[in-house]
Design a protein around this nucleic acid. Structure first.
Length: 300
DNA sequence: TCACGTCAAGCAGAT
DNA sequence: ATCTGCTTGACGTGA
């Protein structure tokens, strides 16, 4: 069991998700920004290692415009060694890695162009993890997509379009329940068809579910991750007080988190904290989990 | 140095 | 029709 946070670190003075405008695209600019982002990623990983935060989501902004037609530059070759160094750091310290393509990536879209662009973007994500020479436990998590007025057809279209993906993506792709359309049960329908691992989002589950218990879901989820996939990943968040249900909190709700840790026994998984203050909440989570035997901490 | 209009991309639901 | 949220601000022009 490991604690993680997504993409950004507010403590160290380095932004690893820098981008620029499409209008100002140039190879020089791309190289400059990617160089910054990769250097920053190393700094973030070192911070995490020093603080027993052993799970991290790498930003999709690492290589801006990587899957855009404007980008002809072979950043893969230019930064080959940088990726290797980062990969070695990750492997040496046994860090779990995930990536999460953003909302524009819709594999089950009715629009063929959207599907094709989504596939290119998924390829880019897989390429980053491959260049780091990470094994199949490094995952790319995706939501199922849109409903288009017919969930059943749209679920099936996901399965059909999944077959268009290459193996580099397939070996890393996992799907996650959302809070508006596709519940965990809907994800398990897809699992039955194509045997893709399921990422359980506890916060989304609280808003959209089919009455199952957390324990039953964790039990089922466990079966969807094969030996090569590593232990399951879950997303956890706290509700922002006095806000719309589903709004992510600034800080972790410690009592709720402790309750979840208790409710989830004895299952083993890595926890991504989708909380706005990022590493601050992750540090709190590490602190309160150091006595939980499911966690693997050093020097504590 | 700072204000602020705008930013590659999809979709659903609220207004 | 338009705006907002999503996992989330920040780029970059103009003054």
């Amino acid at each position: 069991m490991k604690i993680g946070y997504p993409c950004i670190n507010h403590t160290i003075n380095c932004k690893g998700n820098k981008t620029f405008r499409l209008k100002s695209y140039s190879e020089k600019k791309l190289i400059e920004i990617v160089d910054n982002n990769l250097k920053c990623l190393i700094k973030i990983l070192k911070f995490n290692i020093n603080n027993n935060i052993l799970f991290f989501r790498i930003t999709s902004d690492l290589i801006p415009f990587a899957s855009h037609s404007i980008c002809k530059y072979k950043w893969q070759n230019h930064f080959k060694n940088n990726f290797k160094i980062i990969g070695n750091l990750i492997k040496n310290y046994n860090i779990r890695i995930s990536m999460h393509p953003d909302q524009f990536i819709v594999l089950n879209s009715l629009d063929e162009n959207v599907v094709n662009r989504s596939i290119l973007e998924l390829n880019y994500h897989a390429e980053v993890l491959d260049l780091m020479e990470l094994d199949n436990t490094a995952k790319i998590q995706l939501h199922i997509g849109g409903a288009y007025g017919n969930k059943e057809k749209s679920l099936n279209r996901f399965c059909v379009n999944y077959k268009k993906l290459n193996n580099k993506v397939k070996k890393r792709l996992v799907i996650e329940n959302d809070d508006k359309i596709y519940s965990y049960k809907n994800c398990s329908y897809i699992y039955k068809q194509i045997k893709i691992p399921l990422l359980f989002d506890v916060f989304h589950y609280k808003i959209l579910n089919d009455g199952e218990s957390i324990k039953n879901i964790l039990k089922h989820q466990n079966k969807t991750w094969g030996k090569k996939d590593g232990i399951p990943m879950i997303d956890y968040s706290s509700q922002k007080p006095n806000s719309r249900a589903g709004s992510h909190s600034e800080n972790i709700d410690i009592d709720d988190f402790k309750k979840f840790l208790n409710d989830s026994k004895p299952y083993n998984f890595d926890i991504m904290l989708e909380i706005k203050d990022k590493e601050t909440s992750a540090l709190k989570a590490v602190k309160i989990t150091k006595k939980d035997k499911r966690f693997c901490y050093k020097d504590m």
